[in-house]
Amino acid sequence: MNDKHHRLVSMANQISQFFESRPTEEERVGGVADHIIRFWDPRMRKAILEHLAAGGDGLRDNARRAIERLAAAQQPA
């Protein structure tokens, strides 16, 4: 993992840890995904999606699912 991806994984995991105490799956995963959409510059989102595509090493389970959700939203219907 390069420094850039390491930093973004760390940030995503931190966000995830906050939302993991939410009562529903939707809030746990959706909270992370929404936070990343609302606060991350597109190049940061692109980089974390690239990291996911490369295996997503280091991502907490909840963070991974949130980023998978972001990836799915990018796929054409």
């Binding site: 850039k4 930093r7 609302r38 606060f39 991350w40 510059d41 597109p42 940061m44």
Partner: peptide
């Protein structure tokens, strides 16, 4: 789209 925050700019 949101932009870069200061630490993100450095990165």
């Amino acid at each position: 789209e949101p932009g870069l925050r200061i630490p993100n700019m450095f990165d």
